[in-house]
Design a protein around this nucleic acid. Structure first.
Length: 115
DNA sequence: CCACTGACACAAG
DNA sequence: CCTTGTGCCAGTG
């Protein structure tokens, strides 16, 4: 028997860590990339489950919802940390939302294929 | 075992 | 564009 979907967590972390600077992705994209089409919630759950542990290196601020909205900013140390960090990375944020999200959207299934 | 919750996504109004 | 409702999987009480 397998070890449950624990591997799923690691996959999420890996993908998130692979997100290049100045780029953002969505929970649904990661979920789909991992094969969980409807597991978008699980992605966020996975992050929240390990956020603050050894995965502090996890750039969760680069992960937003399908609309580019910073839904998880409330879980950061400060609600402005996420938006502020994205701006530092070079991603314009407008009203807790990534500007030109489509343009900054990073898709592992595609980007990783090109590399 | 059942009910509620959650860093979402999609459809309809 | 915004709000509401439903579906999804897993965890917690």
């Amino acid at each position: 028997m397998k070890k449950k979907n624990e591997n799923f967590f690691l996959e999420v972390y890996e993908v998130v860590k692979l997100i290049p600077k100045g780029r953002v992705t969505s929970y649904g994209t990661i979920a789909k990339f991992l094969g969980m089409k409807s597991g978008a919630r699980m992605v966020g759950w996975a992050l929240n489950s390990s956020f603050g542990e050894k995965y502090a290196d996890l750039p969760a601020h680069r992960v937003v919802n399908s609309s580019g909205l910073l839904t998880g900013k409330h879980h950061f140390a400060t609600p402005t940390l996420m938006a502020d960090r994205l701006k530092e990375e070079g991603v314009p944020v407008e009203k807790d939302k990534v500007k030109d999200f489509k343009k900054y959207h990073w898709d592992p299934a595609i980007e990783l294929e090109i590399e």
